[in-house]
């Protein structure tokens, strides 16, 4: 009986393990090996740490990463600030029927590809775009304003793309929040802001953390939005990896960057969890 259970257990697990191994582990091992290879002065392939060393020696790589990480953190924070009232409204204030409608509304942008979404923004915001047309019509501006190709627009685009991934965990966290806790706090003379700070946010902490991790990783790993909306100053770290692989044919350097991105972003998440005194297991549960 017991061995029968074991067998079926492994049978069910096998496709998952196989999938993980073939599609995730194996290519990563290959990439890892690649990242430690490099050409010496003679043009021969040798084992080397140079690809990793380059990252720290060349200020441009290092700075790009820092910049990317900082913007990803800013994006995560903005997404959180926006998503909190949205999910609160959906869970606690909207009527059940409106709730479903609002959730669908949030999902709607994800029915088109990211590329289409970004181009949508570009049509809206460009100098000869829809928004400028109305601003000119209403006389609010005399000259069309270029709203694309700057960091603020890029962050807005990233926040828009990430919104759902913050709202969904927040909604599920908030659903378990008993309304009477909010009322009790109000009864004990707490202001709205205090209730948010002392009751709602601590209650939603696991949801916030899992949302923040997803949004942070998505923003960090995004390629299209920074590239298309951020314009000329927005070198994103993923673009650098792409450039190493595609434009410079330097797969070894690209692989090293890929692993550095993995390590450093994991490090940032680890620090974030430490600062908020949480463990990954709690968040996932």
């Amino acid at each position: 009986m017991k061995s029968g259970f074991r067998l079926s257990f492994w049978l069910f697990l096998a496709p998952v393990l196989l999938w993980l191994f073939l599609l995730i582990v194996l290519p990563h091992i290959d990439l890892l090996l690649l990242s430690f290879r490099g050409e010496n002065d003679m043009g021969d392939l040798v084992w080397t740490f140079d690809n990793y060393k380059n990252f720290f020696i060349e200020p441009i790589y290092w700075n790009t990463f820092v910049r990317t990480a900082l913007y990803a953190i800013v994006t995560t924070f903005c997404t959180f600030v926006l998503a909190l009232p949205v999910s609160f409204y959906i869970v606690k204030l909207a009527r059940p029927r409106t709730r479903g409608f609002l959730t669908v509304l949030l999902l709607l942008p994800f029915w088109v590809s990211e590329l289409v979404r970004v181009y949508g923004w570009m049509i809206l915001l460009r100098e000869s775009g829809v928004l400028n047309y109305f601003l000119l019509k209403t006389g609010l501006v005399q000259q069309p304003v270029e709203m694309l190709y700057n960091d603020a627009t890029m962050i807005m685009g990233l926040v828009y793309t990430s919104m759902l991934f913050m709202v969904v965990p927040l909604i599920s966290a908030m659903e378990s929040l008993d309304d009477s806790l909010i009322e009790a706090a109000s009864d004990l003379e707490a202001s709205r802001f205090t209730i948010l700070r002392t009751i709602i946010i601590p209650h939603c902490k696991p949801g916030i953390t899992s949302g923040a991790i997803v949004v942070f990783m998505l923003a960090l790993g995004n390629y299209l939005t920074p590239n298309l909306m951020g314009g000329k100053n927005s070198l994103w770290f993923t673009e650098q990896i792409y450039n190493q692989f595609i434009a410079s044919f330097n797969w070894n350097q690209g692989a090293a960057f890929g692993f550095l991105l993995l390590l450093l972003s994991s490090g940032i998440i680890w620090i974030g969890l430490k600062l908020s005194r949480q463990r990954l297991g709690e968040v996932a549960a």
């Binding site: 009790a184 706090a185 002392t198």
Partner: peptide, 14 residues
């Protein structure tokens, strides 16, 4: 006035 709630509504995070 203060209210003692039906399910008490003690704050579990404190």
């Amino acid at each position: 006035v203060n209210l003692v709630f039906q399910h008490l509504a003690l704050f579990p995070m404190m």
